[in-house]
Design a protein around this nucleic acid. Structure first.
Lengths: 132, 132
DNA sequence: CCGTATCCATTAGGATACTG
DNA sequence: CAGTATCCTAATGGATACGG
C-alpha cells in the first residue's frame, strides 16, 4: 500500500516573504492534486456515498485509483469511512468538516479560473500560433 | 516540445450543483499542479528574474524542468519572457497581473492549510498506527 | 459489494553533454 | 547565459482477475 508520493514540492528560497507561503501552499496542493482527489471529494459533498456510487459518479476513474485515492483522503482526515458489517458489505464515505472548509477555500481558485478562462485560452492560442 | 498533459482531470456527475465547480477548479489545478509551477511563480513574484537566478531560487529543480515549466507558464499567460539580444544573452521572466491574482487566490488555500496542518498530521499518525 | 493484487503502458522528471 | 537534446529511472495510472 501507499504508492509513494513525489508530485508537488519544491521549496523556494532567496527572496523575501514567500518562502513560508510556498511551503504551506505546496503542502495543500500535494493533498489536493492528483487526478482524482477533488473529483471524489466533490462527489461526496452531498452526503455519505457508497463505493460503487462513487465509481459511477466520478467519471472515468478506475477501481484501483478510486480505492487508492479514498485511502489517502481518509488518511488525511478529509473523508470518514464507515463499514456496515452486513452481507453483502456496505461501506460509506462521508466528507469531514475539514473537507468542507477546503471546498470553500477552493472557491477563490474557482473564481480566479472563471475570471481568466478565456484569457488563458487566448494566450495559448497566441503562443501556439507563434510557435506553429 | 510539450510533453503532453494528463495530470488532474475527472469530471464529476450525477449529484447536485458541483459539476460546474468541479470542471473549473480542476482546470485551475491542472495549471498550477505539477512539481514546480507554484515554486517558480513564487520565485518570480518580487520582480523580473533571470533564468539562472530562478535555477538558484527554486531548490532542486533541474534545468530541463525549469525550461519546460517556464514554457507552460508563459503559454498560459502567467509569465512574460523577455529576451535582451545581448551577448551573453539575457532573458527575464516576469509574472503577469493574472499570476498575481492567482497568488492572492491561493491565500485561501494557504490559510486552510495552516489551520489544519496539525490536524492532518495527527490524522495520519492515527491512520498509520491503526494500519501498523 | 467492496475491495486487493498483478501486470502493463504512459508520463513525469533527473542528469548532463552540447550549442548559439 | 540560456537554453535544447538525449538517455534513463521512477511514478502514475488503466484494466481486470480474483477473493472475503
Amino acid at each position: 500500500m501507499s504508492q509513494g508520493n513525489t508530485s508537488v514540492s519544491s521549496l523556494v528560497s532567496g527572496s523575501g516573504v514567500h518562502e513560508e507561503t510556498a511551503c504551506t501552499v505546496l503542502q495543500v496542493l500535494e493533498r489536493v492534486s492528483g487526478k482524482w482527489s477533488i473529483g471524489i471529494l466533490l462527489a461526496a459533498m452531498d452526503g455519505p456515498v457508497r463505493f460503487t456510487e462513487l465509481e459511477r459518479r466520478v467519471k472515468g476513474i478506475s477501481r484501483r485509483m478510486l480505492t487508492l485515492t479514498l485511502r489517502n483522503l481518509e488518511r488525511d482526515g478529509l473523508l470518514v469511512r464507515t463499514v456496515y458489517p452486513t452481507v453483502p458489505p456496505k461501506v460509506e464515505y462521508e466528507v469531514t468538516d475539514m473537507a468542507r472548509e477546503l471546498y470553500d477555500s477552493l472557491q477563490a481558485l474557482t473564481a480566479w479560473a472563471e475570471r481568466h478562462l478565456e484569457s488563458i485560452a487566448e494566450s495559448r492560442r497566441r503562443y501556439d500560433a507563434a510557435a506553429q
